[in-house]
């Protein structure tokens, strides 16, 4: 047969049109309401933090890929998303050098050292944030009550989780759950805009870019753990609704824990991952020295992802397995 001028390849010859950039660009889109809320609340300071974080993450990624001799792929938008998520967790007046350190470490050590997008066991934004959090001299900058002391936004300027830590659930009378849900609380630039983050998260689920299992089970985990604490002592521990609408839980459930490469991909793995993240969050809020535990919970559970991915559906056998073929051979040998 004479070869013609044709393209030859394996199937499938159709494609759904999905691209890697779908994930990052849609995440950026979904976070716009939260960014807008942050800018409205904290003004140009917030813009500075977001801009610094995104720019330094992208520059770090491009520079590192150049140094490592890999193709530069900052256009896939994943570095921008990492930088943005990091910025949304920080107080509005975080010094620029801290932001740069966090995003550069997040991108280089958290991501590119492991081989880049898809190979990182931990979410780069979370690695960056955790570095700031555990660096002792900088602890004051991440304490929202101290950091945002000069702002008066017309609602209680006390960080709800710090109040909970200091005086138990009896100190929470000033906080109205509905107001907290609308984002009338201090906290990270975007993370505190609970309703905006929830809207963005639902958009991501509707687009099929975030699977529903992790966010749902994350929130479920928070509810279960806080109800358990509540059963023990309802005066000392806050209720599930308070936990869901404060701090980083909402952004954690929809955006931080669902980072593609540091989350399981099989259904029951995702369910276990989400539940554990949520429960550990509440446990850390109650027993750790930090007011919020979302980031550490996500980081901790990300380490268990290879294990959680073992919770998978067994392959459907449509072809003879090794055992069956060997058995046939034995049978054939016996009959002949």
């Amino acid at each position: 047969m004479k070869a013609a001028d044709l393209t030859v390849s394996t199937g499938s010859h159709w494609h759904s049109g999905a691209r890697i950039t779908d994930f990052s660009y849609n995440t950026l889109l979904a976070l716009i309401p939260a960014i807008a809320m942050g800018l409205y609340r904290y003004g140009v300071c917030a813009a500075g933090v977001i801009g610094t974080a995104v720019a330094s993450a992208m520059i770090a990624e491009a520079a590192m890929q150049k140094i490592l001799g890999k193709p530069v792929r900052i256009a896939d938008g994943s570095a921008a998303v990492s930088g943005l998520l990091l910025a949304l967790l920080l107080p509005a007046n975080t010094p620029a050098y801290m932001v740069v350190v966090a995003s550069v470490i997040g991108i280089t050590i958290g991501k590119l050292c492991f081989g880049g997008l898809g190979a990182n066991p931990l979410s780069p934004a979370l690695v960056g944030w955790a570095v700031l959090r555990i660096t002792k001299p900088w602890a004051g900058y991440l304490d929202f009550d101290l950091a945002l002391i000069n702002y008066d936004l017309g609602f209680s300027m006390q960080y709800p989780l710090a109040v909970l830590k200091a005086s138990g659930s009896s100190g929470l009378q000033d906080f109205n759950t509905w107001n907290l849900f609308l984002g009338n609380q201090t906290g990270g630039i975007g993370a505190s805009a609970i309703v905006c983050v929830l809207g963005g998260g639902l958009y991501m689920i509707a687009r099929g870019l975030v699977r529903w299992e992790i966010p749902l089970c994350f929130l479920l985990g928070v509810i279960i753990a806080s109800c358990l604490f509540r059963l023990v002592d309802s005066a000392a521990y806050a209720g599930p609704l308070f936990h869901i609408v404060t701090g980083n839980v909402m952004i954690g459930a929809f955006f931080l824990s669902t980072d593609n490469s540091s989350a399981p991909i099989n259904r029951w793995g995702m369910v276990a991952f989400g539940l554990c993240c949520g429960m550990i969050t509440v446990v850390l809020r109650v027993w750790s020295v930090y007011p919020d535990g979302v980031v550490f919970a996500c980081l901790l559970m990300s380490l268990f992802v290879p294990l959680l991915d073992k919770l998978k559906a067994t392959p459907i056998v449509v072809r003879p397995t090794r055992a069956q073929i060997t058995r046939k051979t034995v049978e054939g040998g016996a009959s002949s």
Binding site: A3, A4, L6, V8, G11, H13, W14
Partner: peptide, 15 residues
């Protein structure tokens, strides 16, 4: 491409 047996698992011919 000249595809025999369908766009999903068919094969692309060279001739």
């Amino acid at each position: 491409k000249l595809i025999i047996n369908g766009p999903m698992h068919g094969y692309a011919c060279f001739s």
